[in-house]
Amino acid sequence: MRIREWLIWLVIIYTSLLLESSVLVHFTIFGAKPDLLLVGVVLVGLMQGKQEALSKGFFVGLLEDLFIGRFIGSNALVKALVGFLSGQVEREIVKENVVIAVSMVWVFTIVNHLFYGALMILLGNANILGLDYLRTLLTSAFYNGLLTIVMFPMFYFLLIKGTLKKTKRL
């Protein structure tokens, strides 16, 4: 069961990175690129809680880092943290509500960018943030929010009813 779950996550990650690097790069909004994996991690947090989102966030971020080939570990760290934080509200929200999911993705995309920016500044790589950091932060949040409308039904099915449903483990 566990192996099958991780294999499905590998397929999700592969497909997302493929779409992001070859298809969605043609559809940027004011230079902002979407982050399908971040949307996925936040949805895991909202639907399955902090522990699941923490581990998935780390795994997803690490593979994304290896794909990018630069600052390896940065996305793993930030996505794990964002997953953990988004999981904090799991019990407080109505999981079926797509509007809540969109708002949460919007908020946590901003949180993700702020953490990423802080990490880069702390590690002496502030130059990658650029002068358009604030604009990119807001447009990315808007873009990810839009994509959530499309991704929500698929993740709801997978995480609540389907193969990736949370099971109690001893």
């Binding site: 630069r70 570990g73 940065s74 760290l77 990490l119």
Partner: peptide
């Protein structure tokens, strides 16, 4: 700690590792 170390190590231009090579070829 491991993440912070790898972020620092991979912040400069370098030869890519075998894992990254496999990933690039796979995509």
């Amino acid at each position: 700690v491991a993440c912070i170390v790898t972020v620092r190590l991979s912040s400069k231009d370098r030869e890519i590792t075998q894992v990254e090579r496999i990933l690039a070829e796979g995509f």
